[in-house]
Amino acid sequence: MTGKVNREDILKELFNIGVGQAAGTLSEIIDKKIILDVPDVKILNVELGKAELDKFLSQVAEGAVMVSSISFDRQLEGTVSLIFPADKMHQFIDLCLHEDRGEEASMEFTDIDFDTVKEIGNIILNAIIGELSNTVNIPVEYTLPEVNVLNSAKADLFVSDEAYHLVLMMYITFNIEGTHIDGAIVINMTLKSLDDILNTIDKMYDGR
């Protein structure tokens, strides 16, 4: 169970358990059925991670994104960013808040919008990092997510240039009442942190 593909499959399974719980929580809060899915997880070096993320930013988000991100330290070190295409976010927020702004949708994001995305980000990122931390039994400490809108986002903003970092790149799809939104989650962490996680996973699954 040491093959890279299998490790990615295990991570995919872990993250899907996490986002499944997040979907349950969000559905209860917004009182609408919401389905979240992580179809793919890739472990990439910094260079490949940036190329993959730039592809997402240009194709899906066309450069403008709304980002909810947290940094964590202690035993695991890194940052995790939940990235949404900005042009879909008014509709997404409206669906969550049972509102329909119609022609006002061209308005900039308000503090209410930012707080809504902060809560959604908190639920999803908590679920993902929480599931990872619980499974490998390594405690992680972090603060509430910061939310930003970036008009011409490039991968450099999310992926550290330091050579000893790795990137966990996954896509996340949201489906609320038939409205489909593609997002991405980028976990940029030190090689040591990811090694600790993967070694623990290897031990767990080799020993079963």
């Binding site: 969550c96 209410i112 919008d113 809504t116 809560e119 908590n126 603060t143 997510p145």
Partner: peptide, 9 residues
């Protein structure tokens, strides 16, 4: 893990 509930939701 810190938690945030928004007034909007």
């Amino acid at each position: 893990t810190p938690v945030f509930f928004s007034a909007a939701m």
